[in-house]
Simulated assay, not measured.
Amino acid sequence: MDWNKARAFVVTAEEGSFSAAARKLSMTQPTLSRQVMSLEADLAVTLFERNGQMIELTQAGLELLEPARKMYEAAQAFTMVASGQSQSLEGQVVVSVCEMDAVYRLPSILDELRQHEPGIRVEVVVTNGVSDLKRREADIAIRSFRPTEYDFIAKKLGEEHIGLYGTKRYVEALVDNYKQVQILGFNQIDRIITLLSHHGWELDESHFGLVTNYQPMQIALCEKDLGVLFMPEDVANSLPHFHKVPGFEQPLMELPVWLVSPHELRNNRKVKRVFDFIASRLNKRLEPNI
Rank of each mutant, 00 (worst) to 15 (best):
R143D: 01
T79R: 13
R69K: 14
Q188E: 12
Q115K: 05
D225H: 12
I183T: 01
R146Y: 09
W201K: 00
V228L: 10
D276F: 05
L221W: 12
R114E: 11
L229Q: 05
E172W: 02
T127C: 10
K168V: 10
P118A: 00
G247W: 02
T212L: 08
K134N: 14
A102W: 08
L32S: 03
I189K: 09
R169M: 13
I153N: 06
P216K: 04
N283F: 13
A236N: 07
Q182I: 00
E202C: 11
R285Y: 04
Y170M: 14
V81E: 09
Q29D: 10
V81I: 12
R114G: 03
T31D: 07
A75G: 03
I140Y: 04
F78K: 15
K70F: 08
T58V: 01
Q59H: 10
Q218D: 09
F145Y: 09
T58A: 03
T127H: 08
K24L: 04
F186K: 12
R281N: 11
G61L: 00
L174W: 10
A138D: 07
A77Q: 14
H198L: 13
E66S: 12
P67W: 06
G200C: 04
L133S: 03
P118F: 01
K24V: 08
V125P: 06
E137Y: 03
D132R: 12
M80H: 09
T12G: 05
A74K: 11
E249D: 13
C222Q: 10
D204A: 00
R285G: 11
